[in-house]
């Protein structure tokens, strides 16, 4: 379970995140929704500990992302935006490298990799070098790599970017599988339909602040819009009226 409590982050004079708070509970899919530049990626980067918040705090399964970042990372699988693979290694080697770095016993690595290869249905190209993979294949391998240590929490930054219909579909199935297994899934997107189709809870972010944090149903009620897209626009206008 992921908890974010009033985090702030500035880059020079740009205030990317100004006081974001929300919770992503286990067994649910939480969507971070917002226009480009709203602060979604920065929030997620703080969560997967490659950045530190200027103020506020965040924790994953009770581990503070600043004070015990190693523990926080240990129980999190991360797919950063535009995640790349090592082109000279095969898909399997890419996954095994991360498995080893996650501290999985050497004897168990092969089995783990095999399981995740089955789960993500990447067997067909698992033994090919990843140079020249399609965006869909790359995303699948990157996901497998992120999930190989069986993390309780999964953070995905715009995972459906550049995926075709079939790949998006299998990604959606995977996210639902993780949810059913009781995992906490947090993912960001700027596509309303995608979030609406998948998420139990939606956190709409605009201008570095939380505009609304509710279920899809709740958001419709709060904004008085039947259409989610209208609701999205209405919510954003609450924070940045221009």
């Amino acid at each position: 379970m992921i908890r974010v409590d009033g985090i702030h982050k500035s880059f020079g004079s740009v205030r990317a995140v100004r006081g974001i708070s929300f919770e992503a509970p286990d067994g649910r899919v939480t969507g971070l929704l917002g226009p480009n530049g709203a602060g979604k990626s920065t929030t997620l980067r703080i969560l997967y500990t490659v950045m530190k918040p200027d103020a506020g705090s965040a924790s994953i399964d009770g581990h503070d992302v600043v004070k015990s970042s190693l523990d926080a990372r240990r129980c999190t699988g991360t797919l950063p935006h535009g995640a790349g693979l090592y082109p000279h290694l095969t898909a399997r080697e890419n996954i095994a490298y991360f498995a080893s770095l996650c501290g999985i016993e050497r004897g168990n690595i092969e089995e783990r990799v095999e399981n995740i290869v089955d789960l993500l249905e990447i067997k067909d190209f698992a033994d090919r070098r990843t140079k020249g993979f399609s965006q869909g294949q790359r995303t699948k391998v990157a996901l497998a790599r992120a999930l190989v240590h069986d993390p309780q929490n999964v953070i995905l930054d715009e995972p459906s970017n550049g995926l075709d219909v079939m790949a998006t579909r299998s990604l959606r199935e995977l996210i639902l599988k993780l949810k059913d297994a009781g995992r906490c899934v947090l993912f960001s997107s700027h596509v309303m339909q995608e979030v609406a189709a998948l998420c139990d809870d939606i956190v709409i972010i605009a201008d570095g602040r939380v505009a609304i944090d509710d279920t899809a149903e709740g958001i419709r009620e709060q904004t008085g819009c039947d259409d989610l897209e209208d609701a999205f626009v209405a919510a954003i206008h609450r924070v940045s009226p221009e």
């Binding site: 999190t76 991360t78 995640a83 790349g84």
Partner: peptide, 14 residues
């Protein structure tokens, strides 16, 4: 440039 730095840094490794 390859985009593999962030996934690497997000692993539980110092």
């Amino acid at each position: 440039e390859r985009g593999s730095l962030e996934p690497l840094l997000a692993l539980p490794v110092t």
